[in-house]
Design a protein around this nucleic acid. Structure first.
Length: 1077
RNA sequence: GGGCGAUUAGCUCAGUUGGUUAGAGCGCUUCUCUGAUAAGGAAGAGGUCCCUGGUUCGAGUCCAGGAUCGCCCA
């Protein structure tokens, strides 16, 4: 028995708050873990968010997907620990603190604030929104152990990170290189490639065509650049070796450029004098006059022309300038060329006139000898000056505007510089093959990520730029002595032992003070170097932090070895697609660097959320959808349901409040009202149910599914349970959820609709059936909509503290499957549909009974429909259902070939085979197939015997009958309405009218009444004839029939005059007793 | 410029290994049912399955090229 009454207009958000309270009281989440204590682990890793800003709707998306599968697997019987986590370090936090403190540069941090105070502020700021996050996490029903969440700033966490890095160093994979890296001059830090990826923006830059004179002639090289600020660093130019270049005369000048570019650039007035390849061009001219900008430490002289395949002729001139300090390709090509005065192994040979803050140093001079010192290189005013200077010296052919996508700092928006800096790297590119192999063991959802976006990224892997010249991060555990020896510290104990300093906090600046004598030995067993080793100033890329979470969250290897081994690798992780180059990568890279297998087995990649107009949500546009109002209006279940079922999550969402509302109306409310219906009548029939078999109280299996309809509902429920489990196992919440919605619709709009009378009458089998179905739905739905599912379970069963402590339903345990019955019901519903169609065509209301429906069906189909003939009869409101085996009685057949079976047999001859089939006499074929005699066709000298599957016989409706047909089925209705049928129809109209009166009079559905009817004589005839059924239907304990309306109404409370089919009817009634007897 | 994905009704989305009348929900029109349901049912309007070519007896589905959008990378 349900324990509580149900409000049919229940507001779901309010309900959810009650359920949350119940979960707290009963400690359900913890209990769900305790219950599986001994069970096999199913491992989930939480990708740590940063809590220094409020959570948004896209966080809700990933968090509900992070919830559904662990919930499901817990119900499946696994133990699913869900340790929360917070990403604490990194530039986002530093930026927020800088804003808070009103500063904006590293100098200010070090000089005005001090690293100690700055990092203290960071430590505080990083959890500014943690309570907001926790509140939202709880509200959306994301079960996560927030109490024991790992934090990347914890000492234990950082120590594990140090350990990992020291292991990597031991394998010789950590090195300090001098590479050109994306660099933010404002933050004065290097950005990793995944950070760069976050900040591309379309910008307009000047596009400059320079004409540089070759050394031995009058020809001028046309050189293209969009970064004039790099020209002072120019040391060479490069052409593409294989491309064709042209010597072109325009007016007085002769230019060299790629032939492809002559037309677009020089146009009509140009005359090609000669063509030559890039290699030939290098061979002939060798050098040009440089440098492009004078510098206090550079002599005028010849600079080399080089050739390299990276140069393209698709835009520009096919000739590019090389500044190895400001370009990765430039660096590589210059480093490889013997005739460039640059040795990559000697840092001082790299010509870089730009200081770390993005301004020129004192060396760069204008043509008048004025210094550009202190000017920010991306300053548009400077750009103008540089161009004017070049123009003045006659070096400019043309300046255009060029729109392209250029990387910006993802936090502060400053355009990045490509800039050669000393930086620490992990040689991940050496492990490319291992990472690719590990990726092969991973299931990606959607699958194309595996060999697409992610696989591609791995294939093109470059070494991981690990160091950040910042403050708030895990300090790089690298110590170096004046002689250049490097030692990587692998634990806090080691540092304490070597330095004699015990630190409570290993963040900067404290760790910077811990030095020790250099332990480096030149030969094994030799004397240690002993010079004072100091930590290098950098901190570690935060992605290395988060990628270390599989072991660092457990402080492995310093403790919890067992726990770590049990929980590696993860069965499941889930983040948005932007993490392919972020966390998905750092997890895999670190595991591979430590020679472990892939750290995850299944990855769900979620798409982006766009606003209702299809625009990307962003704070600056102000179009971001806040989660709280949505939760308050529709509720967490509604939002979850929308994310799970509206589409495949990786396709991205076009957020729609309307669609969420639709989900509530069409699914949650439909479920709720089916549940309400059950509870309403279960309570009304409490007595009958208590007397009935105890089975309905027990394990949910009804003692007797009394009717086919019961067996059908149970079979459908079992089938759905199987499908939902299967789809969730395959990380396909979308199909799984839609299957549940389909079941609920079948229960509501077919099972309950067809069984209403049995519920009014208190039939225990009907109650038991619906209870089983609803409880199963509650369990199936639990991972999706944990609130409403729990409420239904708790009220209908409640033998456990929560639905989330139940096992996920297995089809076999729900009910026996009956495929035949399911098929038959399908047919019966189809038949009903056709019959209603025929009624509609004839414009005869369903309330008017008809004599006969004639159904065309044969063989198994007929048996199926016959089994459910009562259902069909009642739905169509006909006295009889008659079957005919052949269409002849209703019309005639049409015949069509089945291309699917005949196509493969006849191939090219298919059109002729189709003709042959069409030429057959349909009735003859139908009869032959029925009798088992043989019909053959001959096409292109080939004989084929037609089987029943080779042809599609369809009914052709004759004129003048009310027939609906579809494929092989047809339903015809006998439209003759005799007096008898007419009176029954009227009786039903009268019942309908009385029911309306009851409603108007404000009666409860179960109230008994005294009823008096008067009015038109022909109506009263119908009343007299159907007196009993009218009384029964309207719960009338006494029924007076009179011609005199006033007399009948006199003693009753409520009176109404209405008309039925244009005839007058007076209805008077009085409540005699409330509720069922 | 390269990679990945998407493009099906006004909107949101399904569409199995290629099979000949391309579906659902919402919305719209008309009718209908209702003693749970802001529900349900029937009929109707609404489609160049982005375009072009190809493979095939047959293409929304496979292939190639292109367009547009999104993401990622240069």
């Amino acid at each position: 028995m349900p324990r509580r009454e149900v409000d049919p207009r229940q507001e779901l958000p309010a309900l959810e708050l009650e359920v949350l309270e119940r979960w707290r009281e009963r400690d359900v989440f913890a209990e769900s873990l305790r219950a599986r204590e001994a069970a096999e682990q199913w491992v989930f890793y939480e990708g740590p968010p940063t809590a220094n800003g409020p959570p948004g709707t896209h966080h809700v998306l990933s968090r509900v997907f992070k919830d559904i599968y662990p919930r499901f697997q817990t119900m499946r019987g696994y133990r699913v620990e869900r340790k929360g986590g917070w990403d604490c370090h990194g530039l986002p936090v530093e930026i927020a603190v800088e804003q808070q403190l009103g500063i904006s540069s590293k100098a200010e941090i070090e000089e005005k604030i001090g690293i100690e105070a700055f990092n203290a502020a960071c430590r505080e700021s990083v959890f500014a929104y943690v309570s907001e996050w926790n509140r939202l996490t709880e509200r959306i029903g994301f079960w996560l152990d927030l109490e024991h969440a790992y934090r990347t700033l914890d000492e234990s966490y950082m120590e594990s990170v140090w350990w990992a890095l020291s292991e990597i160093a031991k394998r010789g994979l950590l090195y300090e290189g001098h590479k050109v890296v994306p660099y933010c001059p404002r933050c004065e830090t290097t950005l990793s490639s995944h950070e760069v990826a976050l900040g591309y923006e379309d910008v307009v830059d000047p596009s400059i065509y320079l004409k540089l004179q070759v050394s031995g002639g009058e020809e001028r090289l046309l050189v293209w650049t969009t970064t004039p600020w790099t020209l002072p660093g120019n040391v060479a130019v490069a052409v593409s070796p294989g491309a064709t270049y042209a010597r072109v005369r325009v007016a007085e000048e002769v230019f060299l450029l790629a032939e492809d570019r002559v037309g677009p650039l020089l146009g009509e007035g140009s005359e090609i004098l000669e063509r030559l390849t890039g290699s030939e061009l290098v061979e002939r001219y060798r050098s040009y006059r440089g440098p492009i900008f004078a510098a206090s430490d550079r002599e005028d002289g010849e600079l080399p022309i080089l050739a390299d395949a990276f140069v393209t002729t698709q835009d520009g001139t096919g000739i590019v300038h090389l500044a190895p300090a400001f370009g990765e390709d430039d660096y590589r090509v210059a480093a490889a060329a013997p005739n460039v005065p640059f040795d990559p192994t000697r840092a001082d040979t790299l010509y870089n006139p730009v200081r770390p803050d993005g301004t020129y140093d004192g060396r760069v001079l204008s043509s008048e000898g004025r210094s550009y010192e202190g000017r920010f290189v991306k300053d548009p005013a400077l750009t103008e000056e540089l161009i004017a200077d070049l123009r003045g010296r006659g070096l400019v052919l043309e300046v255009q505007e060029y729109e392209h996508s250029y990387p910006h700092c993802w936090r502060c928006g400053t355009p990045l510089l490509y800039y050669a800096k000393p930086s620490w790297y992990i040689a991940t590119s050496k492990l490319r093959e291992e990472m690719l192999a590990a990726n092969e063991t991973v299931n990606w959802y959607p699958p194309h990520v595996k060999h697409g976006r992610f696989g591609d990224w791995l294939k093109n892997n470059v070494d991981w730029a690990l160091s950040r010249e910042r403050y708030w991060g895990t300090p790089l555990p690298v110590w170096r002595c004046p002689r250049g020896h490097v030692h990587v510290v692998g634990s806090f104990a080691e540092l304490a032992e070597r330095s004699g300093i015990e630190l409570e906090d290993h963040h900067r600046p404290y760790v910077d003070g811990a030095g020790f004598p250099c332990p480096h030995t030149d030969e094994p067993g030799g004397e240690p170097c002993g010079e004072p080793a100091k930590r290098v100033p950098e901190v570690i890329d935060v992605w290395f932090d988060s990628g270390s979470m599989p072991f660092a969250q457990h402080h492995f290897p310093f403790e919890n070895e067992e726990t770590f081994r049990e929980r590696f690798p993860a069965d499941f992780i889930c983040e948005a697609q932007d993490q392919t180059r972020g966390w998905f990568y750092s997890l895999l890279a670190i595991a591979t660097l430590l020679s472990w297998p892939a750290p995850y087995k299944n990855v769900v990649c979620l798409g982006l959320i766009l606003d209702e107009q299809g625009q990307k949500m962003s704070k600056s546009k102000g179009n971001a959808v806040e989660p709280w109002p949505v939760l308050d209006t529709y509720g967490a279940d509604a939002l979850r349901w929308y994310f799970f079922t509206s589409k495949q999550p990786w396709d991205g969402y076009r957020f729609s409040a309307e669609a969420i509302g639709e989900g509530v109306r069409l699914f949650l409310k439909q479920l709720w009202s089916t549940y309400y219906f059950y509870v309403l009548y279960a309570q009304a029939s409490a007595e009958e149910l208590r007397e009935a078999s105890t089975d309905s109280q027990g394990n949910g299996r009804p003692g007797g599914a009394a009717e086919d309809l019961d067996r059908w509902a149970l079979s459908r429920t079992a089938a759905t349970a199987e499908l939902v489990g299967e789809r969730l196992d395959a990380y396909d919440a979308t199909s799984a959820g839609r299957a549940i919605a389909g079941l609920v619709d079948e229960l509501s709009n077919w099972y309950v609709r067809r069984s209403r009378r049995r519920f009014w009458e208190g039939d225990p089998a009907a109650f038991a059936t619906l209870r089983t179905c609803l409880l199963t739905v509650a369990k199936l739905l639990a991972p999706f909509c944990p609130f409403v599912a729990d409420e239904i379970y708790d009220n209908l069963d409640g033998s456990r503290a929560s639905v989330h402590l139940c096992d996920f339903p297995r089809a076999a345990e729900v009910a026996p499957r009956d495929d035949e019955l399911e098929g038959a019901m399908e047919l019966a519903r189809e038949t009903v549909r056709l019959g209603l169609g025929a009624r509609g065509q004839a414009k005869i209301k369903v309330r008017q009974p008809l004599g006969e429906a004639v159904v065309v069906a044969d063989g198994r189909e007929r048996e199926g429909i016959e089994r459910l003939a009562d259902v069909v009869r009642e739905e169509l409101n006909v006295r009889r259902v008659r079957f005919v085996a052949a269409a002849e009685e209703l019309g005639s057949y049409e015949i069509k070939p089945n291309y699917r079976t005949l196509g493969p047999i006849f191939g090219k001859e298919m059109p002729r085979a189709a003709e042959a089939v069409a030429a057959l006499d349909p009735a003859h074929v139908a009869a032959a197939l029925r009798d088992g005699s043989v019909i053959g066709i001959a096409v292109a000298g080939r004989d084929h015997t037609l089987s029943a599957e080779d042809v599609i016989l369809t009914m052709r409706a004759p004129d003048g009958y009310s027939v609906e047909r579809e494929g092989a089925h047809a339903v015809a209705l006998d439209l003759a309405i005799d007096e008898d049928l007419l009176r029954e129809g009227r009786a039903r109209e009268i019942v309908h009218a009385i029911q309306s009166s009851r409603k108007t009079a404000g009666l409860q559905v179960e109230d008994r009444i005294e009823l008096a009817l008067s009015g038109d004589v022909s109506l009263l005839e119908a009343v007299t004839e159907h007196r009993d059924s009218i009384a029964r239907e309207t719960l009338a304990t006494a029924l007076h029939i009179a011609n005199d309306a006033d007399g009948a109404a006199a003693t009753l409370d409520y009176s109404e005059q209405t008309d039925v089919e244009g005839l007058v009817l007076s209805i008077s009634l009085r409540r005699t007793q409330p509720g069922p007897a």
